[in-house]
């Protein structure tokens, strides 16, 4: 069921990628997404593909899991491919100066985004991820943005997604056992049939939240002030190299774009 989805899981295999500074990883991830929209020919696509394969290999996580997370988007890819047949290849959907959006581009973007975000979550524990977000958002403290609270909320949300999914399964089974019909009827009826699932789910989520708050207080949680971290994150040479790569990939893509005429 929903729980089989590999996307968003963490696999502690302790590879080079795992040991990278999570801040570097997040920044690289963002750069990657931007860059993929700027690939206009096979050469620059090659650069991106090369780096993607390199990173996935370095993460020492079985390709099986990457395929699994790609499975989720197969539907989208097939759908857009069909549209592509009607619209013809390379027709820009949207153009602004040298930037143009094509179905091909969107394909590549979805593909690489899923791979890259899988790589990010597979190799970074939720705590590291939110810790890094907290550090990256730190400048926002100046405008009184509750940085610590937001990152704590994110890490709790990440922790409880699987628990709540499991609970949804249980509630659905319980309602089906009482004769609830969720798989037939028109759209409005189907949406209505979700109400008996959502209400118990919300009630239990609030109860859970109360319990969690109690448990956190029992463990001496009193906000972000004065907290330390077990895994303090430091920039090292390795992260330096990673950041260099972060610069090299866009540079490579841009050079390819200039040297070789547009492919589409």
């Amino acid at each position: 069921m929903v729980r089989d989805v590999a996307f968003g899981q963490y696999f502690p295999t302790d590879s080079v990628i795992h040991r990278l500074d999570p801040r570097a990883k997040i920044l690289m991830f963002i750069a990657y997404i931007v860059v993929i929209f700027c690939t206009f020919n096979y050469a620059s696509l090659g650069v991106i593909a090369g780096f993607t394969v390199l990173f996935l290999a370095l993460s020492r996580i079985s390709p099986k899991f990457y395929f699994k997370s790609l499975k989720v988007i197969i539907f989208i890819v097939i759908f857009t491919s069909l549209l592509n047949l009607f619209y013809g290849t390379g027709e820009p959907i949207f153009q602004w100066g040298i930037f143009k959006l094509t179905w091909n581009g969107i394909h590549r973007a979805i593909f690489v985004t899923v791979l890259a975000s899988s790589c990010l979550t597979f190799t970074t524990s939720p705590t590291e991820l939110t810790d890094a977000m907290e550090r990256l958002m730190k400048p926002l403290k100046v405008i009184h943005f509750p940085v610590h609270e937001v990152s704590m909320m994110m890490s709790l949300a990440l922790r409880f997604i699987p628990t709540l999914l499991e609970e949804t399964d249980k509630i659905m089974a319980a309602q089906k056992a009482r004769g609830a019909n969720m798989d037939s009827g028109n759209l409005i009826q189907r949406v209505k049939s979700l109400i008996p699932i959502l209400i118990p789910l919300f009630v239990s989520a609030f109860r859970r939240a109360y319990d969690i708050a109690t448990a956190m207080e029992c463990r001496c949680y009193r906000g972000g002030a004065g907290r330390t971290r077990m895994k303090s994150i430091h920039m090292s040479t390795r992260d330096g190299i990673a950041v260099a790569v972060l610069v090299l990939v866009p540079a490579g893509v841009i050079i390819c774009n200039i040297l070789i005429p547009a492919m589409v």
């Binding site: 502690p12 939720p126 448990a215 009193r222 907290r227 330390t228």
Partner: peptide, 22 residues
């Protein structure tokens, strides 16, 4: 279920001492 606040076992165990500023 409602007492474990982190997504990894060891990070959850670290939550208490982290709060104490160890």
């Amino acid at each position: 279920d409602n007492q474990l606040v982190a997504g990894i076992v060891e990070e959850d165990v670290a939550f208490g001492p982290e709060n104490l500023g160890v």
